[in-house]
């Protein structure tokens, strides 16, 4: 009956998306239990906060953990809104010619992987569908492992790929922005060999690549320094190379000054990655059968945001009530 009420014309626009998704994961029964517990927990925090009593730090931790865990187990998948900032990257890759070369720099470590690895995988899949040639590199020591994981993830879908002809991996070089400053004008000076010590000149796909602008497009995916900002400063600015980026959400707002003049698009955090996954699935329906990692994150992410916002609202209501009481007693 409650479900019928929520699905009525009045409430339907608000609640139908939730009911259409709760049947994933552990099933509808678990989903209902989760939502009931969620509302009960939030209600308890509200009551305690309004009464002016402290909610212990560890109780907040526990509730946050249970909220996210419940949302993950429920398997909520919510629709994603596309934005032009992400679309620009998709369209740029879509419009490249077969055989064009793309430089993919994965500048992050495992702590950025949940947000950034889905971007790297989706962009790689897109490039390979378009028969573009990918050169992987990284400015982070930990990036080598991330590249290895991306290649392992995409390789089974493209068994015909030949190393050195369709893709290559030049790996990591220490030196941060010094590496970028050099490869902007002379790629081989810093990367004379690939990650396995093979001389770059012997890789067919690297013929004609002397500096970064020789790549048709650069996609820098990063979560800190050195990362996207440094790519713009040391490569795009002096060489005029065309670049798009994928940033960890924590650094995405700081990169807006470079869009669209210095980089033509940006994927920000899981939201950006999920948008790209959506575009890829629409353009290449076969990816509908694969796991869309970032899209899966967005459901629990939404629930976590709601919980956090409710905490802030409750705390502020309590703050104003206390202020009012103080004013009345004064």
């Amino acid at each position: 009956m409650i479900q019928a009420l929520f699905l009525s014309p009045v409430f339907s626009p608000l609640f139908s998306p939730l009911f259409s998704v709760v049947s994933h994961g552990l099933g509808p029964v678990f989903s209902w239990i989760f939502w009931i517990l969620f509302v009960a927990g939030v209600g308890w925090v509200f009551w305690r906060t309004i009464k002016g009593r402290e909610v212990e730090r560890r109780v907040i931790f526990l509730m946050m953990g249970l909220t996210v865990a419940g949302a993950v187990l429920t398997g909520i998948v919510l629709p994603v809104q596309e934005t032009v900032v992400v679309r620009n990257i998709f369209d740029t890759i879509e419009n490249l010619e077969e055989g064009d070369k793309v430089l993919l720099s994965l500048d992050y470590d495992p702590s950025g992987a949940p947000e950034l690895q889905p971007m790297a995988i989706a962009v790689s899949q897109h490039c390979l569908e378009k028969k573009l040639k990918i050169c992987y590199m990284t400015l982070w020591g930990t990036g080598g492992a991330m590249i290895a994981d991306v290649i392992t993830a995409i390789r089974p879908d493209f068994p015909e790929l030949v190393y050195g002809e369709d893709y290559c991996n030049v790996g990591y070089r220490a030196g941060n922005e010094a590496v970028l400053k050099v490869i902007a004008t002379d790629f081989r000076k810093t990367f004379p060999t690939d990650v396995s010590g093979i001389v770059l000149d012997s890789l067919p796909m690297m013929t004609g690549v002397t500096a970064c602008p020789d790549f048709s497009y650069i996609v820098a995916i990063g979560s800190g320094r050195p990362g996207i900002k440094e790519w713009v400063e040391y490569v795009v600015e002096p060489s005029g190379a065309l670049m798009g980026s994928g940033a960890a959400a924590v650094s995405a707002p700081q990169l807006y000054p470079y869009y669209p003049q210095q980089m033509n698009g940006m994927m920000g955090g899981s939201k950006g990655a999920s948008e790209y996954e959506k575009m890829l699935r629409r353009g290449y329906p076969k990816y509908g059968e694969f796991r869309a990692q970032a899209t899966e994150i967005m459901g629990p992410q939404t629930v976590a945001h709601v919980f956090l916002m409710l905490l802030i609202i409750f705390a502020n209501i309590s703050f104003f009530l206390a202020k009012k009481r103080k004013g009345a007693s004064a």
Binding site: V72, A248, A304, H305
Partner: peptide, 18 residues
Amino acid sequence: SFGYTVMSRMSLLIGRLD
């Protein structure tokens, strides 16, 4: 920045729990 930081850290937590 705060909003995006929350988003980033939640993604990590979701990644670990997943």
